[in-house]
Amino acid sequence: MTAASVTTRASAPQRWSWLGRPRMAGSPAVLPAVLGLPVLLWQAVFFAAPLVFLVVMTFWQVKAFRLEPAFVLDNWSRILFSATFQRALVHTFAVAGTTTVLAVALAFPAAYTIAFRLSPRMRDLAVAFLVVPVFSSYMLRIYAWQIVLSPEGMVNALLGGIGIEPLPLLGGAFSLQVGLLTLTLPIAVLILVFAMAGIDRTLIEAAENLGCRRARVIAHVIAPSVRPAIMLSATTSFLLAFGDYISPLFMTGSKPPTLSILIVDTVKSGSQWPRASVIGVAMLVMLALVLGIGQWLSSGRTARRGAAR
């Protein structure tokens, strides 16, 4: 997510290497080992190992509704070749793609206003306002949207007040996107705000002094320098929307089901955890691919831009 990418991005080339420093030669590896091993162990046991086990489980069997170790490929073929899975895959990609485009398109102007049009104090307030929802009960916020959007909900009550027929807001692509944007938009805006706030103002002023109109400044100065951040907020939005379970469930009544919904549905075939795991592993592979492409796009373009100068 954000945290992940901020960190890797922030890891500038290290000048200090413990290998070559004489003062630490007595026990060069003790401190890093003491610091690093607990982290390594913890993440290995509670994160990496479960995921590896998930892959192993895709080859297991269910007998008498209990899991049994085995090595069968049947789970894979049964899931990958089923029309249901393929349709859900296409649908999930379409939904997550739409969310990504919407999130970035809405986040960019908002981030621009926050970064360049608000006073520093207001800017901090805006950032605080955006950080809060990232960490506070997404599930409840979706539940609240149901109250707002339902046929007899708040919006329709307001519309009814001015004599407009109730709109079927809940239970379709619109409400699904409302839900997913609730999840992704604050993060997408935050990433872009941080990137834009980091732009050297003198560059913008220089461009303006040269008579550039605002639109040209945005297109030629701001957009290129935040391109990695745009890619980051796009991939983050995609990732969140792709794996989300709550919005498809509560906002559309899982019609049609996304891959996350399909995971839960598949278990219902009599404790079919192995087949559900196949979908899970397939989703992870696709996410890794998308992230890889995103990384490649942002780094590739930056390099080309650098070369062109």
């Binding site: 997510m1 945290a3 992940a4 990418s5 960190t7 890797t8 890891s11 690093g36 982290v39 390594l40 993440q43 290995a44 509670f46 994160f47 990496a48 190992a49 479960p50 995921l51 086990f53 998930l54 489980m57 990732l239 792709f242 794996g243 989300d244 379970y245 996350s260 995971i263 839960v264 955890w273 559900a276 795991s277 899970g280 989703m283 992870l284 996410l287 992230l291």
Partner: peptide, 25 residues
């Protein structure tokens, strides 16, 4: 890899991660 091992977990959908953690742990 070390940094990724720490950084990546929030990026894995919780449905999948929860299922995996349950099965393994």
């Amino acid at each position: 890899p070390f940094v990724l091992l720490v950084a990546v977990p929030p990026a894995v959908p919780a449905t999948i991660l929860g299922m995996a953690m349950l099965a393994f742990l």
